[in-house]
Write a protein that binds this DNA or RNA. Structure first.
Lengths: 215, 215
DNA sequence: TCACTTGAACTCAACAGTTCAGTTCAGTGG
DNA sequence: CCACTGAACTGAACTGTTGAGTTCAAGTGA
């Protein structure tokens, strides 16, 4: 009998499959029912014994944390910040901005799941304050640099005049992304047509204020 | 023994006092601890017996609903939409807009409580979908007409040129209000100084796009 | 007198987490 | 190809707690 009472999580190929199945199920049920969902339901949905769930994750809170942090790695960083990179070389800045914004907003809208997870984290802030912070880092502060960098570059090129970068970044979000975030937190969505008008209108407005003749 | 088994809520002046005390306590505790708070705690905080709570509200869900709907009646409709009325007569439109926005945003920021209640409703959307809808009505759609009306009036006066009113309204929100809503849902706040720059910068941007020379 | 209130004890269900005896299955050595 | 081994898995029963809602006998106040 080993004195070592620490329960290591299972390893091996078989265990990894179960782990993924549990994460998938937990994510889906947390999204559908909130944190209040029972561990039995999650185990059942994953097609796995409850004991296995506990062997892997140790507690409900740990499972929730794993679901969130695993979701933190996947999403929109790729396409959307890539779209921002190309801005500096674009001939037609307006068209390029519209295109970038379109990519970005569609990434946000397409991921029902990620947006819904954001709401879930917000809902459980009092139970998991550290998750709120983690999400804030990856989300807002994670993209700030990309947006800020793109805007600064354009300003350095003389194609934009931006006296207050911090404000400009938030305005960029406010015009393009926040409407979708806010509406989704009510459980509704902005329809396709209005989304499109918001994008072109937002870019127009942004350029009307910050653009120069060389735009 | 009356066959009538329907429990009417208590009435009378003393009952009304208790009712208010319960609502106040419930609101405070729901805000501080979320929907998970125990009915015993609420009763204790209200200085009232648990039985009295149930005599008045019947169930926890009904109590929660009452807290929200009672909060729906009170808030920012007054000052903020009043500030929008005066816009039509203003000489200096920019100054007037900044002033109106300042009033409005301060109303949103000052009411930690209302904003926090909004998050609470969003958190419990799956349990109370009808509350989400009610909040949306009083909140967003409740103010839309005021904002839309003010903007339309200014457009009719020829002081603004607004091709797409629906978009303009959302942009107005997006520049001025949404940043605060989004940040507060992360549990953070935008500081005083940045708030001010967002207001003036937002109005500038709005006017740069929609304003005319007669502005 | 009558409606309202109280406190304390109670029921009942849900749910996190555990225990255990037995089963699956991927290797490993022969 | 087989037998054995051990880690991972299962299912079902169990513990312990928490919390919603109820009951009741007694109190309060217009």
């Amino acid at each position: 009998m080993s004195v070592d009472s620490v329960k290591r999580p299972p390893s091996g190929p078989r265990a990894e499959l179960k782990r993924q199945a549990i994460l998938r199920a937990a994510r889906e049920l947390f999204l559908r029912e909130g944190f209040g969902v029972g561990m039995d339901s999650i185990a059942a949905e994953a097609g796995v014994s409850k004991v296995t769930v506990y062997n892997h994750f140790g507690s409900k809170e740990a499972l929730f944390t794993s679901v969130i942090t695993s979701a933190l790695d996947e999403p929109l960083a790729g396409e959307s910040s890539a779209a921002l990179e190309g801005l500096a070389d674009a001939g037609d800045l307006r068209a390029a901005l519209v295109e970038a914004a379109r990519t970005w907003v569609h990434a946000v809208r397409a991921n029902h799941e990620v947006t819904a997870l954001r709401n879930l984290v917000a809902a459980e802030l009092h139970r998991f304050p550290e998750l709120g912070e983690a999400w804030r880092h990856r989300g807002t502060e994670g993209h700030h640099p990309a947006v800020a960098g793109a805007l600064r570059t354009l300003a350095d090129q003389g194609r934009l005049v931006i006296p207050d970068l911090q404000v400009a970044v938030i305005q960029f979000y406010g015009l393009l992304v926040f409407p979708h975030v806010v509406f989704s937190s009510y459980g509704t969505q902005i329809d396709e047509d209005l989304t499109d008008r918001l994008i072109t209108g937002g870019v127009d407005m942004f350029l009307a204020h910050y653009g120069t003749q060389s735009t």
